[in-house]
Design a protein around this nucleic acid. Sequence first.
DNA 1: GCAAAAGTGTTGCGCGTACACCCATGC
DNA 2: GCATGGGTGTACGCGCAACACTTTTGC
Lengths: 230, 230
Amino acid sequence: MVHTSTEHEVLAVVFQVGDAHSRKPALNVLLWQRALAPERGKWSLPGGRLRADEDLTSSVRRQLAEKVDVREIAHLEQLAVFSDPGRVPDVRTIASTFLGLIPSPATPVLPPDTRWHPVNALPEMAFDHAPMIEYARTRLAAKLSYTNIGFALAPTEFALSTLRDIYGAALGYQVDATNLQRVLARRGVITPTGTTAHPGRTGGRPAALYRFTDSQIRVTDEFAALRPPG
Amino acid sequence: MVHTSTEHEVLAVVFQVGDAHSRKPALNVLLWQRALAPERGKWSLPGGRLRADEDLTSSVRRQLAEKVDVREIAHLEQLAVFSDPGRVPDVRTIASTFLGLIPSPATPVLPPDTRWHPVNALPEMAFDHAPMIEYARTRLAAKLSYTNIGFALAPTEFALSTLRDIYGAALGYQVDATNLQRVLARRGVITPTGTTAHPGRTGGRPAALYRFTDSQIRVTDEFAALRPPG
DNA sequence: GCAAAAGTGTTGCGCGTACACCCATGC
DNA sequence: GCATGGGTGTACGCGCAACACTTTTGC
């Protein structure tokens, strides 16, 4: 009799906004290229098997440590579970997915098989990893609108035009810096530092610098409707 | 050597709004009482072990069928994974939780060990099932405000005062029927049937009847802020 | 007629967007 | 000076909540 056990793996969709390979900043995802079968040559999300003595979050952190400096991960949260019995060949494997965010300036050294890829131009993905990225991006876009999650993508101090580019890259459409400032300021999400940046070579008024008030996720606009009375 | 395998279980938080045991309608959750150790006598969420050949959704449906008529489940969606290595004794077990909703009037026969409990007065819960219910309730409240998920709690046809009571029970605070009508009508979530209900013994103007336009979940107010231009 | 329940109208405000206009810098 | 980028001010619209007022029934 064959003992059909079930494995449990953890996979992380790690995003960062960067301007690798192009002028305009874009939303990138961390991928590594498979050197062995199955799906050799295709690109995978970082992750791996869950150990018996760790919970999911510890497992993601441990496995991401092989690819990036975990201290740079500013936010990490559970996404969905992918459980189709045939999603990977041979042994039945359930995948719990996570969303990880790394602030914009940091780009540490990566292992040779690992690279950032723009989410708008993904390489050939292994298994069912492509829909996982899609799911993560949708979740990120939604949370940008009703939480302070931007703190995990932005530098500690930034000009508003920088933040506009980050939101634009993450959302997939251009955002107006003026209104972004007002929305985030009213909600208390960003705070002015009082200092200003130096203008570029081409001139222009020096930009005021801001920082995110909190460095932990916080819901800022919980109810679109049906608010509690008061 | 001890072979430390990892089990995977599925647990469902099934809600229904009913007026069992009291005059005012309340949000109830489906629980069964454990007859055997561990945690004998305490109350559990329905669910059980995942089989090798089924995905999570199939597994929930199969296991809920032992407790209720699955045809009455109007909505079912994944919640979070609970993965603390010590969350249940002995064998390490990961739990994937689900939110299930059953419309208001239907209350079929239940097995003798199974009962509806008001979420505001839960009995002693087994393991970590209490926080799962809390999580599910939070998710339900959030989705009531930006999706049409109310369809899964309401009867097929209903007066607005009935719907007000359902929303009130699910959200935990009173809702104004007038504004509820306006919000849901503008979004196209509810449609008038053209018919009216008969007033009660005590008189009153006959109420217009409505139904939910869709019977599948749909996001009706995706972005609280940072909408795409247009 | 009176009480009760349902529905309509009105007002006001907070939030978000769009856009015109003013400010500070490099060259 | 002018171009460039940043910031401020204003105006509009919409969604939603609060509440007063009207309509329709049973008794």
